[in-house]
Design a protein around this nucleic acid. Structure first.
Length: 288
DNA sequence: GCGCAGGGGGTCG
DNA sequence: CGACCCCCTGCG
């Protein structure tokens, strides 16, 4: 593996902060100069905006251009998506202007499953810490630029960890969930290859829900943020609940809407782009 | 500075 | 509907 660099003209929907701070990923870290470094699959990359260009540079196991086109989903036409979503209503339009540079990444399915099981009732700094420790302990090192980075462990690699090992890394009550889910995927009780070929959203969700630690919210995040790319799902967490409450129901915050109510409304309003709408709303509500 | 509550991208029983 | 691990954060 050698260092590679790829420079391309900047597109309209591509802002580093929007992409990496909208909550879809946990392994991208902001650098002093405003660029970001992240580990994904067997790669370590720095992404930097330089004037009207995006520069990708780092250790990449395959062709860097193909890798970033795939991972950053660069073929998807966000201009068109934003245009049609903006027409739905004014609040969504405002949130899209606020997070105009958001793109959803094609993240590894297995890594996304484990990462979002860890995210349950947890905060982002701690989630990131846990994932870094898991990677350092069970992943493979990649040296670049005087630093050592670690790949996210494969299923086989993580299956070496006992419940106790996981507890020591600070997973808390999620230790058993990660352990059991790893075992089930290793045994093909849930077959991720087969799941990747499935096209029906409901079948995919029901399959993911089999895994310990995967409930409705985590399942939707996995479906939206991984290579599964089910753009029609609408993950309902506290922030989204809050924003939907305010925008469409005008209820006081304590008056909690049921998940099903929110999902129904989202599906009616946003249709098969509900997941992308969710990201704009989430980012807007949480940052602003 | 340090110590101590409060709460966090939910899930499970 | 309450408990859950543990850290991160904010305040006294």
């Amino acid at each position: 593996m050698t260092e590679q660099i790829y420079k391309m003209e900047k597109m309209n929907a591509f802002e580093l902060e929007h992409i990496f701070e909208c909550g879809q990923c946990f392994r991208w870290n902001r650098q002093q100069d405003g660029s970001y470094i992240g580990v994904f699959r067997n790669n370590v990359l720095n992404v930097k905006i330089d004037g009207n260009f995006i520069i990708f540079q780092g250790m990449c196991e395959n062709d860097i251009e193909e890798t970033v086109i795939d991972y950053f989903d660069l073929k998807r036409d966000y201009e068109n998506i934003k245009k049609s979503l903006s027409q739905i209503d004014e609040p969504l339009k405002i949130s899209i202007e606020y997070g105009s540079g958001i793109r959803l990444l094609n993240q590894d399915l297995w890594e996304t499953i484990i990462s979002f099981i860890i995210s349950a009732n947890n905060n982002i700094p701690r989630i990131k810490g846990i994932i870094e420790r898991l990677s350092k302990q069970y992943g493979k090192p990649i040296k670049w630029n005087g630093n050592t980075y670690y790949t996210f462990p494969t299923t086989e690699e993580l299956s070496k960890a006992s419940v106790e090992d996981l507890k020591k890394l600070g997973l808390g009550f999620r230790d058993k969930r990660v352990y059991e889910t790893t075992k089930m995927i290793l045994n093909n009780d849930v077959d991720l290859n087969k799941l990747s070929k499935e096209s029906k959203t409901e079948v995919i969700r029901d399959t993911l829900l089999i895994l310990p630690g995967v409930g409705p919210k985590v399942a939707d995040c996995i479906m939206l943020f991984s290579t599964l790319k089910c753009l029609d799902v609408f993950p309902v967490d506290v922030w989204v609940r809050r924003v939907m409450n305010e925008l469409y129901f005008k209820l006081p915050d304590e008056n909690k809407l049921k998940r099903a109510q929110i999902e129904k409304l989202a599906s009616e309003k946003y249709g098969n782009l509900a997941g992308i709408a969710q990201q704009y709303l989430f980012y807007w509500k949480r940052e602003a």
